[in-house]
Write a protein that binds this DNA or RNA. Sequence first.
DNA 1: CTCGGTTTGTTCCCACGTTCACAAACTCCT
DNA 2: AGGAGTTTGTGAACGTGGGAACAAACCGAG
Lengths: 218, 218
Amino acid sequence: MTARSTSETARDIPEATVARLPVYLRALNTLADDEIRTCSSEDLASAAGVNSAKLRKDLSYLGSYGTRGVGYDVDYLRYQIAREIGVTQDWPVVIVGIGNLGHALANYSGFRSRGFHVVALLDADERRHGEHVAGVLVRPFDDLEAIVAEQGVAIGVIATPAAAAQDVADRMVTCGITSVLNFAPTVIAVPDGVDVRKVDLSIELQILAYHEQRKAQL
Amino acid sequence: MTARSTSETARDIPEATVARLPVYLRALNTLADDEIRTCSSEDLASAAGVNSAKLRKDLSYLGSYGTRGVGYDVDYLRYQIAREIGVTQDWPVVIVGIGNLGHALANYSGFRSRGFHVVALLDADERRHGEHVAGVLVRPFDDLEAIVAEQGVAIGVIATPAAAAQDVADRMVTCGITSVLNFAPTVIAVPDGVDVRKVDLSIELQILAYHEQRKAQL
DNA sequence: CTCGGTTTGTTCCCACGTTCACAAACTCCT
DNA sequence: AGGAGTTTGTGAACGTGGGAACAAACCGAG
């Protein structure tokens, strides 16, 4: 995707692998909670719901962190994956659009516990300003630039209606945000160098409906 | 994935294509709202954020619904895609776990407007029972079997904490649900023939964080 | 009817991802 | 020390998906 021109220092990890690393990390955390110190690729793979060969190949992109004949040290591997993903540091995040979904996101404990913390909640509707959600003040959308500059925010979450999403994305990009998580049910366009990931609830249901319909046809 | 043994009547559409059909459908709806009657593959592709060659190939799996030299009839194509996905009919859905996220899902208008309607909200916590969310009564989780049987529910949504997700999934499968949309941050195991799709907010953020970290290293 | 312009449907090729299978490397037991 | 058993890391085969390019098909003008 991005052309890595000079100094091929960092090995580039396939996108499909990157998407699975967080799953492995969560599985390792669960194992660690159960005070399991070591696991085989088979153990971890079944906890993560994947094939063990795929797991080993995925991990091999990070380095050789296992021991043949033994397996992986849970804590060590956990740290290596966290470091590779970048969640050993803490990422400030802004959420725009404090409707039903924005509320749920602001309250979602999985963010804070996994290296992210919500530094601001923004909404265009001034009737919401001053309200506190999950202990964070809801502020005007126009405060975006100031907050991003002050806090060094790189990641923005869009939880607005579809009609507002592109405008919000444009403003985010303008003030320096380079990663966007979009919950609005619309396609947003961004310049090169900005990453967008989309989460769309009704699309997921429609995919299930397709398969469901196929099953019914037998 | 599923072995289609006999009567190869229905062409099987690649999974990647299935995942994009809802996007095309939404783009077509937007065009229809603007009273556009016809569009080229180029028009639709840019509205959907994909390459036009890919769009044409995707549509070709459904049949030949375009006219060379002209393009696609918006309404006709819209109907064909909707029929293929299965959203010309209405799918009953149950949501289990009425916390912050469950609330947001119950209130999400995109479901009803796209061929899905919430027939029941279930929660294990009896303090929530009797409450109405988005006009639907919150009922005990133990009512699951009765509701699924009565209403012919095939699709279940899990919005519980991670610890409860597997149990909920097991109960759903037992009473005949064959498609599950899982919002709980954990991997759930289901038997063959049951489809699971996972939506995981913190995983999406972690993927963004990985790329963000890579950008910062330049 | 024919010709030029347009747009679809499809073929071909390449890149990416998945899985198998096995050599390399480690532990433990005798 | 040596051999049996175990598990990782990886090379190779295979399948799926993406994109360029082009033939087929349609429209409209003359």
